[in-house]
């Protein structure tokens, strides 16, 4: 069996070195983005507009009813905000990297990354940072704070910490799934369709999971757990958790998803036979 390139070359430890490299990615991405300032601002506006649309959808529904399943208006607004926060963080850190992977496979540009004396997955996943999305993540925080005030929330320190942690766990679920899907680019020519398809599923995550039943809920809880990603952290902070097992399940599934994506990445890269040579 051939050794996995990149993975075998990566030195153990060296956290400081990786942080330094990551800092360089940030600087480089920032310089690039500032080269297209108008575009940068317009994209922030586009995303703000979409966020407004999601909220307007809920406003229209709640102008005709006062609850969806057991969720009140401001609870749902909080959920939409939390989901937008996760989605924007995902966009900032991972989205363009996942999309670029299949492009790099096609063009053979991946060879260049594999030859670097750094963990290849680290390079592939984190090289580009989309700064505009941080602004939009901030807009999501504003909405969450406002909704929290309307709900008269007074969470404990443990709830705050758990909420923040679970948001990151949710983010990692999205990342693992998307990364595994991007790896299908090693086997088929165009993976972008599948990637955008999954990105579409993000919009499920902003709906209260309790509104769904049966097969649909089972599939999107256990197989593709998008219904957990935003719901569980929000339920923790608004005191809506049925049982602490829900949190445990989210943590567990994120670990499983990450392991699966790592396994699939290694299998894919072993299968990879460069494009140009």
């Amino acid at each position: 069996m051939q050794p996995v390139p990149g993975a075998s070359l990566a030195p153990l430890g060296g956290l400081a070195r990786y942080l330094a490299i990551y800092g360089a990615f940030w600087r480089y991405s920032l310089v690039r983005e500032m080269g297209f300032k108008l575009n940068f601002i317009l994209w922030i506006l586009v995303e703000l507009l979409w966020f407004g649309l999601q909220l307007s959808f809920m406003a229209v529904i709640y102008s005709h009813t006062d609850h969806i399943a057991s969720w009140s208006r401001w609870q749902v607004v909080f959920l939409v905000g939390a989901n937008h926060f996760i989605q924007q963080l995902f966009t900032a850190l991972f989205l363009s990297n996942c999309l670029k992977l299949s492009e790099n496979i096609r063009s053979g540009g991946l060879d260049f990354l594999l030859l670097m004396p750094v963990n290849a997955r680290f390079l592939v996943s984190l090289r580009h940072v989309d700064f505009g999305a941080f602004f939009n993540a901030a807009s999501a925080v504003v909405v969450m704070v406002y909704a929290g005030m309307q709900l008269h929330l007074a969470p404990s320190v443990a709830q705050y910490a758990g909420f923040a942690l679970l948001l990151l766990v949710g983010l990692s679920v999205h990342y693992s799934v998307m990364y595994a899907l991007a790896c299908t680019g090693f086997w088929t020519v165009r993976a972008e369709g599948i990637l955008w398809g999954y990105y579409n599923l993000f919009q499920l995550a902003r709906l209260p999971a309790d509104a769904f039943q049966g097969l649909f809920r089972a599939v999107f809880t256990f197989v593709v757990p998008v219904l957990l990603v935003s719901n569980v952290p929000v339920k923790l902070i608004i005191d809506k958790l049925g049982s602490p097992l829900e949190m445990l399940w989210l943590v567990l599934i994120s670990a499983v998803m990450f392991t699966l994506s790592e396994w699939f990445w290694r299998a894919s890269i072993r299968h990879y036979a460069s494009a140009s040579s």
Binding site: I61, I68, A69, G193, Y198, N200, L201, Q203, A211, F212
Partner: peptide, 20 residues
């Protein structure tokens, strides 16, 4: 693929309205 993925959000909307 697009048609299939497009059906999921549609199904979600339908189930959401049903719940409402």
């Amino acid at each position: 693929v697009r048609a299939l993925f497009g059906l999921v959000p549609l199904l979600a909307l339908i189930l959401l309205w049903r719940a409402i």
